[in-house]
């Protein structure tokens, strides 16, 4: 397995009135071309800032240090024009809230076609065919008709499928999924997780999966990075992190997860 993404000593700093604040500090991890690396942490841990740094989408004013290499090419310090060529084509992203990531004024087909044509420069007709195929690939029934639907005509789970179709339309080498199932109902979440795992395996895409939910990470990631206050507190195979965590913070986090399979009420009652 080759290393598709190599992140070394990544530090993201924001200037504030009270001096510079490191929101991400010396984070190191690698993603192979055939694996899912989970980044887990609570709010403010820096997990989303890490993903935005990879995408080159950090808010203005952010200062980055370290190195982010995709297939051997350095991404940090690239200009907007370069990053635009890379985004959507080599690296793409699925966000938490599909409703605010889709343009309500355009049909989903047009939005998928736009991504494809921007990178591949093909005709509208060819792009439309690709868009229909992409919708079919993500399991939307009747894609020939749905390609002309607007975002509001889909349910939340279906909209997330549309987002995934859009992210994968150019066959990127790396997919970053930032809390892609957090806003979804639990039954829909299960379907989307299965879809992401299947598509990733079929297409050989590397995936970075960001979430606050340890149970979700356990079901999808091969390796896990635990973040707390911008720092990497633990990094290892999923099996090692979940069965033999080295850091107190990871242990505390794992102890906090409410368990569906045991009930503490019994202890209180007895």
């Amino acid at each position: 397995m080759s290393d598709l993404l190599v992140v070394e000593d990544l530090t993201v700093t924001f200037p504030t009135t009270r001096g510079p604040v490191d929101v991400v500090k010396d984070v190191c991890f690698t993603v192979g071309s055939d694996e899912t690396v989970g980044i887990v942490g609570e709010s403010g841990s820096g997990k989303s800032m890490t993903s935005l740094a990879i995408m080159g989408l950090l808010p203005r004013g952010a200062v980055t240090r370290g190195s982010i290499r995709l297939d051997g090419t350095e991404l940090l310090g690239r200009g907007d024009k370069d990053m635009r060529r890379i985004r959507g084509n080599q690296v793409s992203m699925v966000f938490q809230d599909p409703l605010s990531s889709l343009n309500p004024y355009y049909t989903v087909g047009l939005q998928i076609e736009e991504v494809y044509r921007a990178h591949k420069g093909r005709s509208r007709k060819a792009a439309r065919k690709v868009a229909i195929e992409a919708l079919e690939q993500v399991g939307l029934p009747d894609p020939e008709r749905r390609v002309d639907y607007y975002p509001h005509q889909f349910s939340g789970g279906q909209r997330q499928r549309v987002m995934i179709a859009m992210a994968l339309v150019c066959s990127p080498a790396l997919l970053i999924a930032d809390e892609p199932t957090t806003a979804l109902d639990v039954t829909v979440q299960a379907q989307i997780l299965r879809l992401l795992a299947d598509l990733r395996r079929e297409s050989g895409t590397g995936m970075v999966f960001i979430t606050h939910d340890l149970a979700v990470i356990s079901s999808i990631a091969t390796r896990v990075l635990v973040m707390c206050r911008g720092e990497q507190v633990e990094y290892g195979t999923a099996e090692q992190v979940f069965s033999d965590p080295r850091h107190d913070y990871t242990r505390m986090l794992l102890d906090s997860v409410p368990r569906i399979d045991d009930s503490p009420i019994d202890e209180v009652m007895s």
């Binding site: 639990v186 039954t187 299960a190 939910d213 356990s218 099996e239 979940f242 794992l254």
Partner: peptide
């Protein structure tokens, strides 16, 4: 049953070992 089955769980074997 569907609802309960859909809940993500930490791998029970890993959890037991921890």
């Amino acid at each position: 049953r569907t609802l309960l089955a859909a809940i993500p769980r930490i791998n029970p074997e890993w959890d037991r070992r921890r």
